[in-house]
């Protein structure tokens, strides 16, 4: 067996370092020998070799669907890749609750909403609603949190107003719709509006959504980003650690 070279990391098909990938796409032309050749040349032009059109068939009228197997030589130096990740100790709700009461000594106040056009509260509710998600109870049920769930389509200004009024420690933004990168637009909007009012350091800022990553969240100025599969206790745990960190005057990120 060939050795895996992490400095020249390549996809693994069925042999180490073979660089094999599978692709599928549609071209807006009828399937034909010409279409097949066009697809082959197209994939080659992307830097692939050993291009095999495994499948070509018609979709509706005037469209050809392709499944393509190909290989690449373009590798990546794995040890040099950086991807920030939330490194949290796993705790359940009872433990978090106990620690908040012991160390923060009062409930953490948070205000959550989905902003802009986004009418989807499923992510927000999964984290905040008492019931929680998949057996992991929501933040409303914690003694350590005082939650205001503003629901959907809240204008950014109103979210900030409420956070100020509640003297909140943290703002939870949920962004489900991501068509045309609207989630990024709305995430930026919150940061911009906070800055306008000189409040950019006032709250712990947490954002969640299917297309949100922790890396993206940090880049846009949030303290944490949670994606699909995140549980209420993950968010609770982060908020607890962040609050303790703030209290102790540490500024670790």
């Amino acid at each position: 067996m060939a050795e895996i070279n992490l400095h020249q990391l390549l996809p693994y098909g069925d042999t180490t370092q073979d660089g094999a990938v599978q692709l599928s796409f549609t071209l807006p032309v009828e399937p034909s020998a010409k279409a097949r050749e066009a697809a082959t040349q197209l994939v080659r032009s992307w830097g692939f070799f050993d291009v095999k059109i495994a499948h070509m068939s018609s979709i509706g009228v005037g469209y050809a669907f392709f499944v393509v197997m190909a290989r690449t030589e373009k590798s990546i130096d794995y040890p040099k890749v950086e991807a920030p990740q939330l490194d949290l100790q796993k705790r359940d709700y009872k433990e978090i609750d106990k620690k908040i009461l012991q160390e923060v000594k009062r409930p953490i106040r948070l205000v959550g909403a989905t902003t802009g056009f986004d009418a989807h509260t499923v992510g927000l509710d999964a984290i905040l609603n008492m019931k929680g998600f998949d057996g992991d109870i929501g933040l409303e049920r914690y003694k350590g949190f005082k939650v205001v769930n503003m629901g959907s389509q809240v204008p950014t200004e109103e979210l900030i107003d409420r956070a100020v009024k509640e003297n909140a420690d943290a703002i939870l933004l949920s962004k489900v719709v991501s068509q045309k990168d609207i989630h990024i637009h709305d995430m930026r909007d919150l940061i911009a509006q906070l800055k306008k009012r000189g409040l950019e350091n006032r709250f712990v800022l947490v954002v969640g959504g299917p297309r949100v990553t922790h890396k993206l969240a940090l880049e846009l100025g949030y303290d944490a980003g949670f994606t699909i599969g995140s549980r209420p206790s993950d968010v609770a745990n982060f908020l607890y650690e962040k609050m303790v960190e703030k209290k102790n005057g540490k500024t670790k990120k």
Binding site: T26, G60, F65, Q179
Partner: peptide, 13 residues
């Protein structure tokens, strides 16, 4: 599902 609104090929498949 859970990635994007369906592409033409997703629907076809």
């Amino acid at each position: 599902e859970a990635i994007h609104t369906p592409w033409m090929q997703d629907r076809s498949v």
